[in-house]
Design a protein around this nucleic acid. Structure first.
Lengths: 144, 144
DNA sequence: GTTTATTAGGATAAATTTGTCTTATTTAAA
DNA sequence: TTTAAATAAGACAAATTTATCCTAATAAAC
């Protein structure tokens, strides 16, 4: 459904958010370890997230990644997915046609539209805050 | 959502089904042309579909691909997707965890489960027959 | 100011997916 | 029986995604 990069990006953002809620800034090594992802590849993804203003990065010793507490609830899943995988998953044709739309539909257009709309709605409504708190209280997990 | 191979596979199967409903066997060149896909790559995908008993292939002059009329309605989208992309899209974890399940859920487990279940239900209920007839009467399109 | 721990960025490499090419096999028809 | 037109299969190539490595830039702490 999503690319590996996007999966790591979502996992990383949730972990950073959880730590930020507790007032902690976290570095690359810790993030990779806690979300069980390749370190250098994760670095690239964190760069992308920082460029898209989803997370903040701080250089130097004691540096790392964090999210302003007041922003955590306004970051939704869709922001991460769009930043890393583009919004093709939400708007593109299920059979890969370029001109597919209601007036020139592919055979599965209406069936897929419903699925994609559901995915888009869920991704727009699901905040990183709720995902981070679920993790914080031990209801959910980020690795294995 | 699906791989290119899967997209071509679905498009090809719908086209073959439509022609089979009209009693026509169709060959690789015609299929590629009508679904606007790379010829040699499409050949590989048709082989996969034939091996998975989704379509029949016939060698020799006048050979080509076809589907038994009586089978067309029992072939569902999910059969093609599972054959080409595996059922990971229907059952896998949205964040790529291997052990993700209700008792050990990733942070988006329950949100994604609903989406995936919807996709699975739709794919199980949507028959190639209905997709082929929509194409046949000009309501839907397979290229551009 | 120097050292050191961190992120940023660019070059490169490995793995996977997408796509091509060539030869073998099959079979209808002349 | 020969020819020709089709699919099957395997080797190869290109493109994309995933992943690594090295150097530069930044900034805290001594």
């Amino acid at each position: 459904m999503f690319s590996k990069a996007c999966e790591y990006g979502i996992r990383a953002t949730i972990y950073i958010a959880m730590q930020s809620l507790q007032g902690n800034r976290v570095n690359l090594k810790e993030i990779s370890k806690e979300i069980d992802s390749p370190v250098a590849f994760t670095a690239k993804i964190l760069q992308q997230l920082a460029k898209n203003d989803i997370i903040n990065s701080v250089k130097g010793p004691t540096g790392g990644f964090e999210i302003n507490k007041k922003d955590i609830d306004s970051i939704k899943l869709i922001h991460i997915v769009s930043a890393i995988d583009s919004d093709k998953i939400f708007n593109g044709c299920g059979l890969g046609l370029k001109e597919c739309n209601e007036d020139f539909p592919c055979p599965v257009h209406f069936q897929f539209k419903e699925i994609r709309d559901n995915l888009k709605k869920m991704s727009s409504e699901t905040s990183i805050y709720e995902l981070a708190t679920g993790l914080e209280v031990g209801l959910t997990f980020l690795k294995r």
